[in-house]
Write a protein that binds this DNA or RNA. Sequence first.
DNA 1: TATATTTAATCAGAATAATCTATTTGGTAA
DNA 2: TTACCAAATAGATTATTCTGATTAAATATA
Lengths: 312, 312
Amino acid sequence: MTITQLKYVLAVAEHQNFTKAAEKTFVTQPTLSMQIQKLEDELEIQIFDRTKKPIELTSVGEKIVEQARNIVNESERMQDVVDQEKGFIGGAFKLGIIPTIMPTLLPMFLKSFANRYPKVNLKIEELNTDEIIVKINEGYLDAAIAATPLGQDKIKERPLYYEPFVGYIPENHRLALKDKLEVGDLDIDDILLLEDGHCFRDGIINLCKATKNVTSEKFQLESGSFETLVKLANEGLGMTLLPYLHTLDVDSAFKKNLKYFKEPSPAREVSLIYSKSELKMQIINALHDSISGVIRGAIAFQDVKIISPTKK
Amino acid sequence: MTITQLKYVLAVAEHQNFTKAAEKTFVTQPTLSMQIQKLEDELEIQIFDRTKKPIELTSVGEKIVEQARNIVNESERMQDVVDQEKGFIGGAFKLGIIPTIMPTLLPMFLKSFANRYPKVNLKIEELNTDEIIVKINEGYLDAAIAATPLGQDKIKERPLYYEPFVGYIPENHRLALKDKLEVGDLDIDDILLLEDGHCFRDGIINLCKATKNVTSEKFQLESGSFETLVKLANEGLGMTLLPYLHTLDVDSAFKKNLKYFKEPSPAREVSLIYSKSELKMQIINALHDSISGVIRGAIAFQDVKIISPTKK
DNA sequence: TATATTTAATCAGAATAATCTATTTGGTAA
DNA sequence: TTACCAAATAGATTATTCTGATTAAATATA
């Protein structure tokens, strides 16, 4: 059994196709076929069921793939160990970011990070929280930025910052005259929210439920971006809530509609999360440093009350 | 990087000598030298400091060896996965047993186990608890039988049985006239114990401390085997405590000196312990089944009060 | 039904890598 | 110095892995 063979197995398991897997692993299809057969001979068991189209894993095959992933992960970590020792920070790194954080946070740290760690080849994907959890566990993502806590026992969380919620109250809204918002003022049926699946939304529902025992689950409207929500609010369709960093992008003509909460303001915890297996820790540390650095300037620290996203 | 190379590295790290390591891995010394050099070239780092005699690991080398052990362990587990699927129970297995359990338990299950699982090549070593913990963690032992709980977070414990303590009270001892012993009767200065390092002793000290707040740590006598202890007791040097299974070996002429505790009798928990990495689980399960089987006949189950060994 | 098309297996030869034997080098100890 | 030991090196041999061409089988298309 060689590590190469295991990588071939993983590639076939992923693409369900020998030819594609061969391309991805930069060998010819016969090479891949032979190596996998050799492994099957050595273990004296079928890994793939070749009668099915597309090709499928046998039941043992699934366990073998799982174990192969372990071995390959551990083996990739060897370079990590060496890099750590050398103080070398570089290599490929996949980072997931949830949609409600992506547009505000990414521009803030990306340039400085790229300058500071030029050897890191950062690939960033916008994914929602559920997708992130899956992809961290299967080793596709090296780390991600999401609202926490998630309560996932295979995932570590390292808080980056606490982002207060700010109300966006259009002119003739019932709360327009208040100076500062209070959590008790909120009514779930009256708040414009992002479409389901965005964890920011989960956080808000939770907030309302927690404070007013609202059980109603019918929302007037749901949109995919905060920009839209603000416009809808301006049309008199209700108020909305924005994470603090998004308020910086609000058109100056409408800044007057922003209403802050009385302290302690409700807030979401935003963390860098990664697998407990702690691969590529040097890069994770570097990311944490970079982001913490830019955030310190952007969010004036206030007394804050954390709202957890509802995660099953 | 290949698994073979990592095995070579582990062998050299263990024997601190290329030539010996080569013998152990069944290749010639140049083969080993070259493969290790190749690995060092690939990682661009020195693993061994060859100027030292005997050869030494560099500081990175130590981390590399640790990671190599992970990889090799995970890779050996692959066969395990397959065996499990096939229901195959066999292969080499190293079992440690503490001295106070070895002579009584081993004869009870060894023969039947060997018959039932003829393909398992069982190697048994008598080791004390501390040695067992070390050797399980470094992967030298696959499992062990010891008094528990140990409170080791890398080690899993699976209780086999609860073995009551029985007092051995010589004729003119102050407790000789009592019908049943009580925990409160015990006085640490009056009990003959095994020499330090035997966890059975730790258990007893604990028992006495717990019940009478004895702080005195001077013992009249310490011996290496229960047989000796019984003889010493017969000489009037005090009483002693025996685990139940040992009482079966007491000469019938002296059986009258055995005094049981009032229920719930103090007892020790004896468990099958193994690394959390759960290698060779089929064999561990097989052992558990075999031992539980023979024990059910030997220890009539009673109401029992568990005494934990003191483990730092 | 015949004909492409797709996909994995097979085979022979080339390229690569691992291992062996024999020898050299570099320290240590006598 | 010489003798001795352990690791490195050189060259030959053997194993292995890979490729390119081809085949076989299954599926899709005309």
